[in-house]
Design a protein around this nucleic acid. Structure first.
Lengths: 354, 354
DNA sequence: CTGAAAGCGCTTACAG
DNA sequence: CTGAAAGCGCTTACAG
């Protein structure tokens, strides 16, 4: 592995020489950390332009200044990347870039504790954004120890002293159940997450149980991992075990793809035979036979907020709130209808719910 | 902006001291670039473990060794991120990590020439992967000048001396047209890309024209940007201008989402009234009323191949081929049927095509 | 307003 | 088999 020779890049020394000053002055002309005579500054910048100079982030960082980069730690392996997650990433990237920071997405098949240590110690980044938070998350523990500024998207079981932005999962599932009950449904089914280590999953399952209790309804659930296939199978299970079911909720767009197919294959029409609510909101859901009623998990809002908070942290700006719970939104589509005395009665708008 | 103080990380000096050797020896024990007595090595590694030492990539890089990182340059702004692109990224990440390299996705709203220069000169990465290649791509020009190893996913107009992996766009559209003609269709419509600066777009449009010429068919196209809405509108245009149309092709999954909706809204059934082929292949297309026949643009294969080639380049391994044109795949679904004498005649398997 | 010098944490000739 | 020293390209006290 011979070393690559890239076109020799100009250094601060060459700039200094060309401008007839010491490199100290070049450095300060750039950083503005101490006054430089206008005339001198002119010459320095001219030299920089002529040489197409841009300071080496590597050297800078080694010499002790911040890298002005933040990393999103993103485990690639687990499920796959979903539409929602892409939207997190996009909104984070926008905010980060807009503040002049470099945005690095660090992906490894399974980002474990050692990888995190690597990243932190690498000095590559000033701060870290963490996704896919587990109930008990080793990565969080490590990050806390190392003292690097970080913000979680999601939250663990115990969040004392941690900074996070998370969708309010309990409210989200509650919103869906309340809405369906309000429409007159009494037999609900929930295609719920399977891996309860994933903190968000745990919360919406608990939330569903709580909601059912509140309305004194049976708590019908069928677990499905993050895939269309699993959603398909879970829906079949629900249909078989609870033929009386008049409404169903699916915990993610990915699962919904399968669940809707299952309903179609079993000859159950949405919304005539069964009302349906999907978590998330995806461009692709348009392909379904009708507009779905969805619980918007608001990845853009959550992602942007988290990025914003991390940057504030890096700038030592005070944070108004370190723990933000984003309220979910119910977007009323055509997949949910009123249910009275065992029959559906057509589309209904419920006032007050957008 | 006071500097962050992260937990002081151990340095090579501390390791050396603890092991009772010079840092030179520690360095060589790690790199293996020169022999170290087994006993000494033992002590060094023991010290490393005790201190949880991991060498600073920053310092390493500055001292002249490769970073073992590669960057995927990914402009965020232009269209949005599509499912296909996510699949490129995932497959690239897998290959890169598997070879022990760090995979950085560098996203900026619009990655322009200056950003590229920054990246290259930053020394953050050993090599670069470039996506969304334009017919005339300034970024490519710069990258060539700087001498950093890079591989394109896609290709420009003139590719002399460049290394790339690209789907054979001309073959892709040709495959679709040939197939439809073979099924007896003579009036085809193509929802084609609008921005012909995008090299792939240019190629499939040319390819369509060529294919139509070959079969002596009129060349009906309606351009659509990368969005469902645009696809919707383009399909309406095609339906209005070419009511005789019995088959349509859409240039991307995103556009297909809209196009299929338009057909549904206009009461045209797939495949009874019109056969339909979509480029790309998305999980979400399952939501359509039937399995679509698709031209698989094979992002996994293309991405993995490109990553593989870049890593070979970095390891100074010889490349068998520097320019790879990936053949497209036609996946036969239920959205295409035989058309005879003005009427559709049901599902057909064409032998030899999977 | 400006410079000379030390130091960030490594790697790598150069010596032995 | 092992060390002492120079150097990578910057930043930042310390002087003036």
């Amino acid at each position: 592995m011979t070393p690559r020779k890239t076109k020799p890049r100009p250094t601060i020394n060459e700039v200094a020489q060309r401008a007839g000053v010491a490199k100290t002055t070049v450095s300060h002309a750039i950083s503005g950390k101490r006054p430089v005579a206008p005339a001198t500054r002119e010459r320095v910048f001219a030299a920089m332009h002529e040489l197409q100079y841009s300071p080496s982030p590597i050297a800078r960082r080694l010499a002790g200044s911040p890298s002005h980069a933040i990393a999103l730690v993103f485990p690639l392996a687990s499920p796959t990347i979903a539409d929602v997650e892409v939207r997190y990433i996009a909104s984070i990237g926008a905010v980060v870039n807009q503040h002049g920071y470099t945005f690095l997405t660090l992906t490894a098949p399974e980002v474990n504790v050692d990888d995190i240590r690597q990243i932190v110690y690498s000095g590559l980044v000033d701060g870290v954004l963490l996704m896919r938070i587990q109930q008990k998350d080793e990565r969080v523990k490590l990050l806390k120890e190392t003292d690097i500024p970080f913000v979680m998207i999601g939250r663990t079981r115990d969040n004392k002293g941690l900074t996070f932005v998370d969708l309010n999962g309990e409210a989200a599932i509650g919103l869906a159940v309340d809405y369906l009950v309000e429409l007159g449904h009494h037999a609900l089914g929930f295609i719920c997450p399977q891996d309860l280590n994933f903190a968000f999953a745990q919360r919406i399952v608990k939330g569903f149980e709580k909601s059912c209790d509140k309305h004194q309804l049976p708590c019908n659930m069928a677990p499905a991992v993050w895939s269309a296939d699993a959603g398909y199978r879970a829906m079949l299970v629900l249909l078989e075990q609870h033929p009386e079911m008049t409404a169903a909720i699916a915990w993610s767009e990915v699962v919904t793809v399968g669940a809707v197919s299952a309903l179609r294959d079993m000859g159950r029409k949405i919304p005539d035979d069964i009302s349906f609510i999907s978590f998330d909101r995806s461009e692709h859901l348009h392909l379904a036979s009708s507009d779905l009623t969805v619980i918007d998990t608001r990845p853009e809002a959550v992602g942007a907020q988290a990025a914003q908070m991390l940057i504030s942290l890096l700038k030592d700006e005070p944070l108004e709130r370190t723990q933000v719970l984003m309220p979910p939104l119910l977007i009323n589509g055509k997949s949910t209808v009123r249910h009275v005395n065992g029959q559906h009665v057509g589309y209904t708008k419920v006032p007050g719910i957008h």
